[in-house]
Nucleic acid binder design. Sequence first.
DNA 1: GTTCATGCAAATCGTTTGCACAATG
DNA 2: CATTGTGCAAACGATTTGCATGAAC
Lengths: 130, 130
Amino acid sequence: MAERTRTSKQRDRILEVLRQTGSHPTAKWLYDRVRRQFPNLSLGTVYRNLAILQRQGLVVKLGFGSGFERYEAKILPHHHFVCERCGSVADLKLALDRSVMQKLRQTTGLRTTRYEIRLFGICKRCSGTE
Amino acid sequence: MAERTRTSKQRDRILEVLRQTGSHPTAKWLYDRVRRQFPNLSLGTVYRNLAILQRQGLVVKLGFGSGFERYEAKILPHHHFVCERCGSVADLKLALDRSVMQKLRQTTGLRTTRYEIRLFGICKRCSGTE
DNA sequence: GTTCATGCAAATCGTTTGCACAATG
DNA sequence: CATTGTGCAAACGATTTGCATGAAC
């Protein structure tokens, strides 16, 4: 019943490439890259291995990862708390010093239009469940 | 050639619902909700109007909004800068005081496993282009 | 009346899955 | 040998798009 995991040259290479690149590639990018060593590699294998690597805590999927987009009306800038178990998203009203945000912008030196702080964790409802 | 936009009861209602709800709904959720007033509403219309509202700056799409997932190997915690024009994602090394992050966690009172600060703006490469 | 928005259905595209075979332990 | 991983192709689900009709101006 316990999950067994064997080694696989493809998976090793996927992780290696992901560690070397400074970018945040998509599955397709990884597929094209790793295919140089494994010409018969299939996209399905890339997805399957990415899932395994995530379960092992070696890889993170950016974004909400729920498969579909979420929208909100632009009102006041605010932040989000994302539950890693049920995927729910809650608004956060964080009282951050203005100075901190100013510092953020200065540090980056980039033209920043907006920012968002995203906290990930287990929401209260899911907390009671486990 | 200039883009004309007419009013539409459906679009008004979509925005209204989005403004009233505290959640971060998916297109499907909005569709089900707005259909109460417009039984013949189609999902395509919802997507089309969400796109228009985004162009008008009234609505924001959460996530990277590029349509596909992005992955990264889990190394040290860090943050991201997302270019709103070309969609590129860059790592940010922000020197944030530990105290600030502690404050963040305390404020929320939630069990937080990780956090990520995401800045949105126009990257240097795109900046030179316009 | 001209043009944009809608509804419907088909098409698209990223991701997942079933199956037969190859590789791991 | 028992079981997991792979490649291939089909399936799936969210989003997009073409087209004929209806609404806005």
